[in-house]
Design a protein around this nucleic acid. Structure first.
Lengths: 204, 204
DNA sequence: TTTTTATTTGATCGACCAATCAAATTTTAG
DNA sequence: CTAAAATTTGATTGGTCGATCAAATAAAAA
């Protein structure tokens, strides 16, 4: 009963929240964080601004919901493909390829994610991009684990897994946020070349 | 006469502009782009907001001045060190080490640079970070040139210079903007490890 | 000196923002 | 069907923003 009550009462609310989150992603992609005001988001969703305030306590709560949705979407896509591989090299290749593939599959989500990470700040004004997710960032941990596994199994040589992981993520993020390289080489090429380079760098 | 006139009349103006630019860098570092309003910058500089408007036609002109100053400062520091080396491998190592060293030498400038690049937009609302500087970005061209030189001289093996350059810049930028890795490994270690990894990846 | 020009300020303008609230509407429960 | 609860809106509030302007001040020129 209480459960059914929860579900029923939250059905409309949940749908509305989902709609607002979608509209926020669209708005972030099209106009950027600075211009993604509640009124712009409301206009995109075809509702009033007060309705957003009714379903989200404030703007930062809304952005946090959007952010966690974007992160978990990306994470599940990548981890799903990594887990289909058995060898460290296979997992590493899958990690890189899936990370880049996700971006080209969901460019709007990728842009929205970047906009939030680089603009949003904690109540004490610390930017999200300077926030150390360390343990919380599942992808970083997964990548570092893959690298350590490869070293343990003597499939990979000697290197600092933290630095190697950072380099790989930097290379992936570079294609995400940096247009010049996007125009110089297409995603397929970039993905393949990056895998080649990393595999050589990682080799024993 | 007209020259002396220019110099004299612009002496105060130039000093004031420089002061405003410095205050802007401080404000960007301490509060971020979103909160770096003209009044905050003016407060930091100890002047009125109208005075900023008197010396800069509008906010975006101010930010563009700050940006170009930050970019040229970083460029000259790095290029100076690269040009002291003669071999591709020496230049490559110097490029990486100098890029990372500059960040730790001028963390405030680095933060301010990031804040502008990720927040500022053109009049038609295109974010700077999506703007393809391609030919304009001196550092990208220099790095790609080093890589091609190395390949021509058979010092480096086969790889796509654009992808390799992008990966290196991504790795450098990752340490710049990403706090978690900063806490895991110090700059010296990161720099050294990154050089090692890249040299191995680049090897014939 | 006096006059002209450059610099600086305080006040003000219109625009947009996030958040709030009472009232209207819709949905659910009894 | 009716009462209560949930949903939605339009209007408003207090605030900050960038830009502008006339007036004050300082500097330079005459």
């Amino acid at each position: 009963m209480s459960r059914s009550n929860e579900e029923k009462s939250s059905f409309i609310a949940e749908a509305r929240r989902e709609q607002v989150i979608e509209a926020t992603i669209q708005t972030l992609d099209e106009m950027g964080y600075v211009h993604a005001s509640l009124s712009q988001i409301a206009k995109k969703a075809g509702i009033s601004t007060a309705l957003i305030s009714y379903h989200f306590s404030d703007k930062s709560e809304l952005m946090n919901h959007v952010l966690s949705k974007l992160i978990s979407s990306s994470e599940s896509y990548i981890l799903e493909r990594v887990r289909q591989e058995n060898t460290p090299k296979g997992k590493l290749t899958a990690f890189i390829a899936a990370s880049l593939a996700y971006q080209s599959l969901h460019p709007k989500r990728t842009t929205a994610l970047l906009e939030i990470i680089f603009h949003a700040r904690t109540p004490d004004n610390i930017p999200y991009y300077k926030l150390g997710d360390e343990d919380e960032d599942v992808l970083v941990r997964e990548l570092q684990q893959i690298l350590r596994d490869g070293q343990d199994k003597d499939e990979f040589g000697l290197f600092d897994p933290a630095v190697m992981a950072s380099m790989i993520q930097g290379a992936i993020g570079e294609y995400m946020g940096n247009t010049p390289i996007t125009r110089q080489v297409d995603l397929e090429t970039y993905s393949g070349e990056l895998v080649n380079i990393v595999c050589k760098a990682v080799k024993e």
